[in-house]
Simulated scan of single mutants.
Amino acid sequence: MQLIQIDKARYRKHLNRVIIGCGLALAAGSLAISQTLIALFPDESGSHFHWNLLGVIVTSITIGWALNKYRGHDYMTEVVYVWELKQALNKITRKMAKLKAAGREGDPQALLAIHYSYAGSRLLWQLDDNTITMDELAIKQAELDSVAAQFNVTLNTDDYDDSILKQF
């Protein structure tokens, strides 16, 4: 997955609308389904927990289906890209201990994966205005650059492919 610069304002606007839309759909759908089921199948004890739960489950599945169906739509481009980037970074994070150990020994693939993780994290943090941890990331990046220079490894995020994680 290539790192690309995306329009922060467009991303935030679309993400906020998707989140609000999903929240409203969940509330409306859950209530509509559960109230319909309660009206059709009333419980003499007054407990309608199972109908309410079923309403939430059905509506959640429907929202998930709709998001998946429209993930290729132009409106969802930035939202889906960030979601996929977060998944890619999570894959790296789960292997980070092994990657760092191999990186200290000069493994170019490990160094590349770490570099991609740092660059991707920087991109995400800038989109989310999470600048508090940027100084810490800059220190880690400088350390990584030092190790890469020591082993004469050139790091370019465009060279990263998640298939290299299989060896760690």
Rank of each mutant, 00 (worst) to 15 (best):
R122N: 10
E44M: 13
L15T: 14
K86A: 15
R122V: 08
L31G: 14
V18N: 11
R17Y: 14
N90I: 04
G64P: 05
M76S: 08
N130W: 07
V58S: 12
A28S: 05
D107V: 01
P42A: 13
A32L: 11
S117Y: 12
G72M: 10
H48M: 03
R71C: 05
W65H: 11
S45D: 14
D145I: 02
S30R: 07
S121I: 01
A149S: 05
A102N: 00
A138S: 04
L67R: 11
L155R: 04
K98R: 11
V82R: 06
I114W: 09
L26N: 14
A110M: 01
Q126W: 02
N68G: 08
L155C: 04
T62W: 12
K13R: 15
L3F: 06
A27M: 15
L40S: 13
L155Q: 03
G103F: 03
V153I: 13
A28R: 03
A102L: 00
T93C: 00
S121W: 00
L123K: 02
T62S: 15
L137M: 15
L15M: 14
L26C: 07
D129I: 04
N130H: 07
V58R: 05
L24Q: 01
V82W: 08
L111I: 12
I164D: 08
N156T: 06
M76H: 09
R10E: 12
H50V: 12
S30L: 05
L99Q: 04
E143K: 13
D129Y: 09
W125S: 14
I92M: 10
A88Y: 00
T59C: 13
S121Q: 03
L67K: 07
Q2F: 01
A102E: 01
E84K: 11
N152L: 09
E143F: 07
R17G: 15
E78V: 01
K100E: 12
L144E: 09
L112I: 05
I38D: 03
W51C: 03
K166G: 11
G120E: 02
A110E: 02
I19S: 06
D158E: 10
A149D: 10
Q150C: 05
F168W: 06
L40C: 13
D107G: 01
M134W: 02
W65N: 10
F168S: 06
A88H: 04
L155T: 02
M76E: 07
S146P: 00
K8R: 14
S146Y: 10
T77F: 03
I139M: 14
